[in-house]
């Protein structure tokens, strides 16, 4: 196997594949998937991804997730500002404003639209900036190593986490920057148990994360990755780890750099 592990400025163009499936608990209730994802590409070669999980306790959580994923991705895709932590915060502030307006228009509580957000900007040079409110996570491959770039945030109660609708969302928005990245995966909490080692310290489960990211680089074919990713999320092995909705966006830079 000849994977060029030399991450950094020499990498090829970013490509991405994503999939989202309703978990068994939702399928049982006849409910739709409350996760959403969105990916956008910038003219400067950067890739933007956002995955969101509508709060189970929020009647319109799925709508909130859809709105935030789209708004964060499109804000970051069109922003003229440098793609650093400030841009990620601004994108979330704008997405949250949309939620506020939607709640007013529908005459519902803002909390009815509660959702988490995992946003990733990957520049052409291999710098990854993550903005993250709530659970879910991001694993990255950088310098040949695969690790957890942003971990799920947990409250005291099981399933309790933070949402963009919280008045204190800025305190809960965590930003991470990783350089020399050539692949990453961002996912909602339905994938956590499969992809991570949750006994502290929380870390990437290498047989999942490393295999997935290396495979993406190796295959380099988004439609194929997307079909296979859906198969993975729907697999009995994944279902056995969680009956929640599962969403994962997989992105990588083509291995051949010249």
């Amino acid at each position: 196997m000849t994977i060029d592990a030399a991450a950094g400025a020499g990498g090829g163009a970013w490509f991405a594949a994503g999939a989202s499936i309703a978990g068994a608990s939702h399928a049982r209730d006849g409910a739709a998937c409350d996760d959403a994802w969105s990916v956008a590409r910038r003219l400067d070669g950067a890739l933007v991804a956002c995955v969101c999980d509508g709060a189970g306790s929020a009647p319109l959580g799925g709508l909130g997730a859809r709105m935030v994923a789209d708004a964060v991705a499109s804000h970051l895709a069109s922003s003229a500002a440098p793609l650093g932590p400030e841009a990620i915060v601004a994108a979330h502030a704008e997405a949250r404003d949309l939620l506020v307006r939607a709640a007013l228009a529908r005459e519902v509580d803002l909390e009815d639209l509660a959702c988490t957000s995992v946003a990733v900007v990957a520049s052409a040079g291999g710098r990854v900036v993550v903005g993250h409110v709530g659970d879910g996570g991001v694993v990255v491959r950088g310098g040949g190593e695969v690790r957890l770039a942003s971990a799920p945030a947990r409250g005291d109660e099981p399933g309790e986490t933070w949402f963009l609708t919280s008045p204190r969302w800025r305190e809960h928005l965590r930003v991470a920057v990783v350089d020399r990245v050539d692949a990453f995966a961002a996912f909602t909490d339905g994938c956590e148990r499969a992809a991570l080692e949750l006994d502290p310290p929380v870390r990437a489960h290498q047989p999942f994360a490393r295999s997935l990211l290396e495979y993406a680089i190796e295959v380099g074919d988004p439609p194929r990755l997307e079909a296979e990713l859906r198969g993975l999320l729907e697999s009995p092995a994944m279902a056995a780890t969680s009956d929640d909705d599962k969403t994962l966006v997989l992105a990588a830079r083509a291995a051949a750099s010249g």
């Binding site: 499969a194 992809a195 991570l196 495979y215 993975l232 697999s235 056995a240």
Partner: peptide, 19 residues
């Protein structure tokens, strides 16, 4: 269609169930 990803990627089965 065979799914090679499924063959390559191993799900963590050792995380313990919620209590």
């Amino acid at each position: 269609m065979s799914n090679e990803m499924l063959a390559r990627v191993s799900v963590n089965t050792l995380n313990r169930e919620r209590r």
